[in-house]
């Protein structure tokens, strides 16, 4: 296993280098001068020159690339073009928000999606199956901003049940340790803050969970259906095993490989930020920030974030592969 992981890590290097070159080229080949994009209507020649100098745009492309890579290796992600704020600070301020939201959404998606898929699978063509698959279809089809605004108006404005702006109420103070507000509240032993943080999480997490939940439910269902038709299930039933033992231990365990794969992929997607959900719920994560930075041509942000996202995908994929071996003892690396 250790050799396998080491090999995977080494294989990741060319992937990251490839991604970095691709991102760099794409950014620099878009027509239009980033200095002008930053300065807008008031651009003067001197100021355009200052920005170009700062971004190193006067140097040949390959030189710009190596300077950037060199800085990255030394841990220097550079400063944002607008505002001159260290990119590393901005990322460490925003990433915990994205992680907290992603994990909450994924938890909801798994806790709802997997049972829903199993139920549909074992009760194929029943009312439960139809209803579940309808919910799943609804989940993938409804635009996030429609669902988000609907929840805001019903749950937030009309019923006044839950907050829908940001991660904490203005009245709540919380010392930052991990940046994950729920974890920080537990560390501080501050139950009011914990409740406040959880309340703020509910609406965005539920909204963000709809798509992965639907995908997970559908994959679980089809995977279950396939396994339930296998001979060993019939054998297990014939042995007189209780039905939940058959479903959970025999069927579900064997159906898990594709489910774990899809959960891993969803996690990667969620961690790269959720532009719409973050926008609607004023969630200070990385998604909208990256999106805005691309529009504003803030190269240092876009370049750093893309690399981080590539690394997230690589790590998530490795974890999924390791989980394969745990779930299915026949798989050996």
């Amino acid at each position: 296993m250790a050799t396998y992981l080491a090999r995977r890590l080494i294989e990741a290097v060319p992937v990251i280098v490839g991604v970095s070159i691709l991102v760099f080229l794409l950014l620099h080949l878009i027509p239009g001068d980033p200095a002008l994009a930053i300065l807008g209507e008031r651009a003067t020649e001197e100021n355009v020159a200052v920005i170009r100098e700062r971004l190193g745009l006067n140097k040949p492309l390959y030189e710009q690339y190596f300077i950037w890579v060199g800085n990255m290796i030394q841990g220097d992600l550079g400063n944002t073009v607008r505002g001159n704020i260290p990119v590393a600070n901005e990322i460490s301020s925003r990433f915990p928000a994205t992680i907290e939201l992603s994990l909450s959404a994924l938890t909801i998606a798994v806790l709802v999606g997997v049972p829903m898929g199993i139920l549909s699978g074992i009760r194929r063509n029943s009312l439960i199956d139809t209803a579940s698959m309808f919910i799943a279809l609804f989940g993938v089809s409804i635009p996030i901003f429609v669902l988000g605004l609907l929840l805001i108006y019903i749950v937030g404005v009309e019923l006044h049940w839950l907050p829908f702006v940001s991660r904490l109420s203005s009245s709540v103070q919380l010392e930052r340790v991990t940046g994950l507000h729920t974890v920080d509240a537990i560390i501080a032993g501050d139950w009011t803050a914990l409740k406040d943080a959880l309340n703020h999480l509910i609406l965005p997490a539920v909204t963000l969970a709809t798509v992965p939940m639907a995908v997970i439910a559908r994959i679980t269902r089809s995977s279950m259906l396939e396994v339930l038709n296998q001979d060993y299930i019939r054998t297990a039933r014939a042995k007189g095993l209780r039905s939940y033992v058959v479903v959970i231990r025999h069927a579900f365990r064997n159906a898990m490989l594709p489910i774990v794969t899809i959960i891993g992929l969803q996690l990667g997607t969620l961690l790269s930020g959720a532009v719409l959900t973050e926008t609607i719920y004023s969630w200070p994560g990385v998604g909208k920030w990256l999106f805005d930075s691309i529009i504003a041509r803030d190269y240092p942000i876009v370049q750093s974030m893309t690399l981080i996202i590539a690394m997230i995908y690589i790590v998530v994929n490795m974890v999924v592969d390791v989980l394969y071996a745990v779930i299915d003892p026949r798989i050996r690396y």
Partner: peptide, 21 residues
């Protein structure tokens, strides 16, 4: 029993806690 268990899990996952400051 399996169905019941699963339904409970689904409901638990969706229960909101209510409060606003």
């Amino acid at each position: 029993k399996v169905s019941l268990l699963l339904v409970v899990a689904m409901v638990l996952a969706l229960v909101p806690t209510v409060s606003i400051s």
